[in-house]
Design a protein around this nucleic acid. Structure first.
Length: 257
DNA sequence: ATGGCTCCATACTGGAGA
C-alpha cells in the first residue's frame, strides 16, 4: 500500500504533471493540497481516466484539498476541522479508505508573523491537535497527511538561521508541531531516515531547486496502528525538475499489506 | 536586506504563497 501527498499549487495548471506523476509513481491513495480551483472546476474526468476515484473540497482561487484512491471507495467523514464554524478555508478532508482513516490537510502558511495570519495558523494548529487527540484515542489506523507548513527541526531547513522569524519555523510553530506529534504520532519520513537531509519544497526563486535550498514541510504523521506497518518512505524529487511543476515535490510512504 | 518566481482572478495588476 503506497500513500502519497502532493501540494500541486493549482490542480488545473498542474494537470499534465499530476497525471504523469500518477502514472509513473502509481500511488494507491493520494492527498492533494492547493487545488486553487472552485468545487465545480476539479478535473474529475482526467483523474477518473487515470484510474482514481476522488473526493475533494474546492475553493475559488486558494486552498482546496482532495483524496484520490485506486483501491476502493472513499468514505468521507468530514470536510472541515471541528472547532470553528466561521473558518471558510478549504484545508481539511477526512475519509475512510479501506481500513484507514486518511486526514488530508493544508495547514495555513501564517506569514507575516506576528499578525492575524500567524494567529490563524496557531489557532488552526490548536484545533488540529485537539481533533488528533480524539482520533488517536480511537486506536484505529489513522494518518495525518499533507502540507503542514512547518519545518520540525533545523535538519529540515537548508539555512535555519534565515528562517527563525518565519511563520514556518518560529518557536511557537515548532512547539505546536512537537506537541501534536508528542501525542503518539510517528513522523514517517524522519522515522525511516533519521539524521538525513530530506526536502519536499523548493522555492521558485533564485534557482532554489538547483542549489538544493529546500524545506521539509510535507509530512505523514501515523498512529501506532499504522506506524507498525511502515516499511518505506521517500520524496519523488525528480518531479520538482519537470516543466510547469509545483514548488512542492510528491512525498510517499509504503505500508505492509 | 531585498527580490527573485508562479499561481489565480476577470486582468494588463494584485494577492498569496513559503
Amino acid at each position: 500500500m503506497k500513500i502519497a501527498t502532493y501540494n500541486v499549487n493549482g490542480v488545473n495548471g498542474r494537470l499534465p504533471v499530476l497525471l504523469r506523476w500518477l502514472e509513473e509513481s502509481a500511488p494507491d491513495i493520494v492527498c492533494l493540497q492547493e487545488l486553487k480551483a472552485p468545487q465545480e472546476k476539479f478535473p474529475l474526468g482526467a483523474i477518473e481516466a487515470a484510474g482514481y476515484q476522488a473526493v475533494w473540497h474546492g475553493q475559488k482561487s486558494w486552498n482546496g484539498v482532495a483524496i484520490l484512491s485506486r483501491v476502493g471507495e472513499i468514505k468521507e467523514v468530514r470536510r472541515a476541522l471541528p472547532g470553528d464554524p466561521d473558518d471558510v478555508h478549504s484545508r481539511y478532508l477526512e475519509a475512510w479508505v479501506k481500513d484507514m482513516l486518511i486526514c488530508c490537510l493544508y495547514l495555513p502558511n501564517g506569514n507575516p508573523a506576528p499578525g492575524p495570519k500567524f494567529d490563524y495558523k496557531l489557532g488552526w494548529f490548536s484545533r488540529l491537535t485537539d481533533h488528533a487527540k480524539k482520533l488517536l484515542a480511537e486506536e484505529t489506523p489513522v494518518a495525518l497527511i499533507g502540507d503542514f507548513n512547518v519545518m520540525p527541526t533545523e535538519l529540515d531547513v537548508y539555512k535555519p538561521e534565515r528562517w527563525v522569524d518565519d511563520a514556518l519555523f518560529r518557536p511557537e510553530t515548532r512547539e505546536a508541531f512537537h506537541k501534536l506529534a508528542g501525542q503518539g504520532w510517528t513522523d514517517a519520513l524522519r522515522k525511516l531516515h533519521p539524521g538525513e537531509t530530506i526536502y519536499t519544497f523548493w522555492d521558485y526563486f533564485r534557482n532554489a531547486f538547483g542549489r538544493d535550498a529546500g524545506l521539509r514541510i510535507d509530512h505523514f504523521l501515523l498512529s501506532p496502528q499504522l506506524a507498525k506497518r511502515l516499511v518505506k518512505a521517500g520524496v519523488d524529487r525528480q518531479v520538482r525538475g519537470w516543466e510547469k511543476t509545483s514548488d512542492h515535490a510528491p512525498v510517499w510512504i509504503e505500508l505492509k499489506r
